[in-house]
Design a binder for these strands. Structure first.
Lengths: 157, 157
DNA sequence: TATTGTTATACTCTATAACTATA
DNA sequence: TATAGTTATAGAGTATAACAATA
């Protein structure tokens, strides 16, 4: 509801001085999730960039380490990346000799995935970096709070 | 580390039967944040789509309601949308007569933003929808847990 | 010269349709 | 006919550079 002249000027001055009122948005879980995510991810991305890994690449390597010989289909569902997009992602990792696709002898349509030795080495380093970072990134929380946060997040998802 | 023939077959069968091991990833706050976010946002987006609002459009309307006559610069910083992207976003909202840009008489470079009457009405409805949804979306949490989750998320951000 | 906001554009991410090879 | 994976492509979201108007 637009104002005119003097009213507008004083309204602008008032608004500029005040702290931003975000009470409604900050009462919503989704808004807080996004803010928290945006505040911690840039650091993580920066660290992973040293290994030329995006967060999703790290996720794939770490899942392959823990689940060798997993099928692409299952990986795709687990990490919420569509089969077409996963295919190109895996092309890149395979091109860097970090993973290997193996035709499944039981069903030649499907492929199973494993880390190469290079991939396993890189994954170990990246996981170490991630867990180091985890401590630094959540230094605003106590150990108990961090555990509680993770528990609540897993309850939602 | 690729296997051959019989070994591979039994490895594949084992992997296919087992639950996916995500322990490393699930120990990281960032991974859990993303999973929680992805699990609650589709519902929110669907509801907001009825008002032809994306989450970020809702955020802008709600912030303008609570902070009339805010400058674009400040809004841009608050919601993490770059000035060029905010400009086109505001173009669309202004084209729908939901908001209005006003040249700041104190500094003609800047513009301040307000909701129109239509915008205020739509924002009220959308905020009502959001808070209704909030209860349904976080029904896996108790009231106390939800409050604690929000508190911890705000500590991180 | 610096700042606010805009335009134009490029880059990344995500989503969809159509194809292959196997079953 | 159905499924796993791929290719190609389109769309949304995000980032950057160059510009106009004002300070």
């Amino acid at each position: 509801m637009p104002k005119k002249s003097a009213d507008l000027i004083s309204a602008i001055q008032d608004t500029a001085d005040q702290a931003l009122d975000q009470r409604v948005l900050l009462s919503l879980v989704g808004y807080n999730l996004k803010r928290a995510y945006l505040s911690i991810m840039p650091v993580f991305e920066k660290r992973m960039a040293k290994y030329e890994l995006r967060p999703v690449d790290f996720t794939v390597l770490s899942l392959l380490k823990a689940n060798p010989n997993i099928q692409q289909k299952r990986l795709s569902a687990a990490i919420n990346v569509s089969p077409p997009n996963l295919a190109t992602l895996l092309d890149k990792l395979e091109g860097r000799h970090l993973i290997q696709r193996q035709r499944n002898p039981l069903d030649k349509r499907s492929q199973t995935l494993v880390l190469t030795e290079d991939g396993a080495r890189l994954c170990d380093k990246a996981e170490k970096t991630a867990s180091d970072l985890e401590i630094a990134a959540s230094n605003k929380l106590t150990v108990a709070e961090r555990a509680e946060l993770i528990r609540l997040l897993q309850k939602i998802a």
